[in-house]
């Protein structure tokens, strides 16, 4: 057994990981979530805004991190829609436009009373990474002459009086890396003292903790926080519990548990093999 495990082909590990994730998905294993203090900080930052407040929805992620971040983006969208906030979507990632379209589809489907141009709008993507932030923070119209669909911004009612991102009451950023939360903190939240909340991937989240709470009100880190935030929104607006897509993050916590436990067991097993080998005098 020791020899088998010592020289275990990695494909067996792959198979175990596949089973660990696939089985809970097929069995629809889910667990209850209780929003943490950090998630409630994010929730309250939106919840405490008065109706009609302007919120910049900066979606900076692409399909590669959609599994992790789409639940956050959808929950942010639903929360803002429930609060009747004005949503301005924009993106710094070239593949993020369809992510915005997904959020807008939620608004069209679940909130048909909200009107494009009055309650929400899609500014779309502009190349330039943080170069775009540097322009829109002082003059949005110089760069965004039209919205994503080609309509002149001066003809869009909710752009009245909006000359720069400084007009926003809150920045909501969902980010998979650079450009993303770090750049919004560096060029908007810190120098212009703008209130900001963010959702980030697991890879990025630990690096963003130093910005909390002075530069960033709160952070949703990875799928666990997405699930907790979904639960917080459902707690606040219970009718959302009937919508299956409003619980995407909560659904993913089943495979998450089994996957994490598998990794922990693999590390323990590897160390047991290591220490047995060391006692036997094996070199690896």
């Amino acid at each position: 057994m020791y020899e088998f495990l010592k020289t275990l082909d990695r494909r067996w590990v792959f198979l175990l990981m596949f089973l660990a994730v696939a089985t809970p998905i097929l069995l629809k294993v889910t667990f209850p979530e209780k929003p943490s203090a950090m998630v409630m900080d994010v929730f309250n930052a939106i919840e405490n805004l008065p109706e009609g407040s302007k919120v910049l929805m900066a979606w900076d992620f692409d399909p590669a991190s959609r599994g992790e971040l789409e639940p956050m983006a959808s929950a942010f969208t639903r929360h803002c829609a429930e609060k009747k906030l004005k949503m301005y979507y924009m993106a710094l990632w070239p593949l993020a436009v369809p992510m915005i379209q997904d959020s807008i589809r939620i608004l069209e489907r679940e909130y048909p009373h909200l009107e494009y141009g009055k309650d929400y709008m899609n500014l779309g993507y502009k190349p330039g990474n943080e170069g775009v932030i540097k322009v829109v923070i002082t003059n949005i119209r110089k760069l965004y002459t039209t919205d994503h669909y080609g309509t002149g911004v001066e003809t869009i009612p909710m752009m009245n009086g909006v000359t720069s991102v400084q007009a926003m009451d809150l920045i909501v950023n969902v980010s998979a890396g650079d450009p993303g939360t770090k750049q919004w903190v560096q060029y908007v939240a810190t120098p212009f003292k703008k209130r900001m909340v963010a959702g980030a991937t697991g890879v990025q989240a630990p690096q963003l903790y130093p910005y909390i709470p002075e530069q960033l009100i709160g952070l949703l880190g990875a799928i666990k926080a997405a699930a907790e935030y979904e639960q917080a929104v459902i707690n606040g607006y219970p009718h959302l519990a009937k919508i299956a897509t409003a619980k995407e993050g909560l659904r993913r916590m089943g495979p998450q548990l089994v996957g994490h436990v598998l990794i922990v067991l693999l590390i323990i097993l590897a160390n047991v093999i290591y220490f047995i080998g060391r006692r036997r005098g094996d070199s690896r």
Partner: peptide
């Protein structure tokens, strides 16, 4: 990452 955890993480 699972494979790396099994092969590389030693206390």
């Amino acid at each position: 990452i699972a494979s790396a955890a099994f092969r590389a993480f030693r206390a």
